[in-house]
Simulated scan of single mutants.
Amino acid sequence: MSDNKKQQLHISEVTSNDSIAVTAMMDGKKVEISCTYAELTDEQKAFLDVNYGNHYLPVELITMEVDGEMVPVTFQGQNSVLQVVVVNPDGVFKFENILIRKTTLPGEKTFHLINAVSTLGIRFNRRRGVRVNVDTRMELEQGEEKFVILVREISYCGFSFINLSQSDVDINKPFIFNLIERDGDKSFSYGKFIGKVHRTEEQKSGPTIYGCILADKHADQLQKYVAMKQLEVLTGKKAFAEDIQKTSNSDRWRAEVADALGDTLIDNSAENTTENEN
Rank of each mutant, 00 (worst) to 15 (best):
G158K: 05
R199K: 15
M70P: 14
N97C: 00
L82H: 10
V31R: 08
Q7W: 09
A21P: 03
P207S: 09
R182T: 15
R101T: 14
R252F: 15
M64N: 10
F124Q: 11
D220N: 13
T63G: 04
V148N: 01
M1Q: 08
G68R: 03
R126H: 01
S80T: 05
L9H: 10
I122P: 00
P72T: 10
V130W: 07
F111R: 13
Q245I: 04
H112I: 03
N54F: 12
F193D: 03
R126M: 00
V132W: 06
V73L: 08
W253R: 01
L99V: 12
M138G: 02
N178R: 12
G158E: 10
T104S: 13
Y52A: 11
I100L: 04
L265Q: 06
L150I: 10
K186C: 11
V169P: 04
F177D: 08
E96W: 04
D263M: 06
L113P: 09
D18I: 00
N172M: 05
P72R: 08
R128I: 07
I100P: 04
K238V: 09
I33S: 11
R127A: 06
D216S: 03
S19E: 15
D263P: 01
S165G: 10
E144A: 10
C212Y: 01
F75A: 05
G206I: 12
T110R: 10
V59A: 10
L179E: 08
I149G: 07
I194L: 07
H112T: 07
V73A: 00
Q166V: 07
K102E: 14
S16D: 15
L61N: 07
L179Y: 01
H218C: 00
V257P: 02
S155A: 03
L234Y: 04
D251S: 11
D251N: 06
R126P: 02
G68V: 03
I149V: 15
Q230M: 13
L231V: 06
Q223Y: 02
K229C: 01
Q221R: 05
E32C: 11
T235K: 05
T273N: 14
V117C: 09
T247K: 08
C212Q: 02
S80L: 03
H112L: 10
I213F: 12
F240R: 11
A219S: 09
L105V: 13
G53Q: 12
N249G: 06
V87Q: 14
K109Y: 06
M26V: 02
K30E: 02
T235Y: 00
Q245T: 00
F240T: 00
G211Y: 13
F177T: 08
G206E: 12
T208H: 08
G211P: 08
C212G: 01
A21L: 06
K5E: 11
N17D: 15
K204I: 15
D3F: 14
K109P: 05
Y225H: 04
I162L: 12
S34P: 02
V14L: 10
D135P: 07
K6V: 13
K173M: 03
Y52L: 04
K29S: 05
D42P: 12
